[in-house]
Each structure stands twice: as C-alpha cells, then as structure tokens.
C-alpha cells in the first residue's frame, strides 16, 4: 500500500516539476528606471491616442490601433537599441521620445511635441514592458 502511495507522490512530483521549473527560471531583471516617471500616466498618454504612438506601434496594453509602421513595443524593457543604433538607456529614450529626428535623422518617427514630463512618463511605461514569455 505504501508502495502505491510513493508511486503516486512521485507521479505528482513529476507533474509539478515543469511548473516549479518555470518559477525557478531566471527572470530578466528590470534595471531600467526613469526618475520621476509614472508608468500609469505614461500608459494613459499612450492609450489616449492623440500622440499617435499606437498608430505606428503595436503596444500590449492598447487594444486599438495596433500600428505596424514601427516595431512592436512589447519587450521594450529588454531591448538593446532604440531606433536601431541608440543605446536603450532611460536618458536616451526620454530624449528620443521628445525629438526623434534629432537623435536619429533617418527615422520616420516625428516629433509629436511631448514635454519632458510626458516623455518621462511614457519612457517609464515602456520600461514596464517585458518580453512576452517564450520570445
């Protein structure tokens, strides 16, 4: 009888193993932090639509539109480069958001007239976007 019980325990343990594995897998540590940036306000700016972020980018928390002109912004926190050649650092991102052509002359992304506070909030929001599982 105890033999059967042991077998059952082993089976359960085997079934649970993959799930435990998931929990143990190293999480990418989000080191990106924007001073004075509020991701909630940032999301509101992005989702509000008047700056047109979502018209060009697919953004995970915005259902519509899911633009396909620029790259999707899911996993922004883990990207190495902005616009293909700028280091993805908080300061650079804030500056880029405020005036993209100034940092990347060949970009198609226009200066939409963000204030520094707005750019910080949006950057803070973008750094909450981890890469989706399995990608």
């Amino acid at each position: 009888m105890s033999h059967v019980l042991n077998l059952a325990r082993m089976a359960i343990a085997l079934m649970l193993l993959p799930m435990a594995g998931c929990d143990l897998a190293p999480k990418p540590l989000n080191t990106k932090h924007v001073d004075e940036g509020d991701p909630t306000r940032g999301l509101a700016l992005v989702a509000g639509g008047s700056y047109g972020c979502a018209a060009c980018h697919a953004i995970p928390d915005v259902r519509f539109p899911k633009g396909n002109v620029g790259p999707p912004l899911a996993g922004m926190a883990g990207r190495s480069l902005i616009a293909g050649h700028l280091p993805n650092k908080p300061g650079v991102l804030v500056a880029f958001l405020q005036d993209p052509p100034a940092l990347a002359p060949q970009t198609g992304m226009p200066n939409v007239g963000l204030t520094t506070e707005q750019a910080r909030d949006i950057a803070a929001y973008l750094y909450t976007l981890e890469a989706p599982d399995g990608s």
Binding site: Y51, G52, A55, P65, G67, V69, M109, P110
Partner: peptide, 20 residues
C-alpha cells in the same frame, strides 16, 4: 474617427492607412 488627429497619427495614417 479611426484615430485622433495630430502629427503622429497623420504619419501613422499615411504609412499604414490600410492597416489601420
């Protein structure tokens, strides 16, 4: 009424009107 106005959306619309 598809997207709001503004330069960002204008650019997005020109480049991908068929997607939006």
């Amino acid at each position: 009424g598809t997207v709001p106005g503004g330069v960002g959306n204008i650019a997005g619309w020109i480049a991908s009107a068929q997607h939006l």
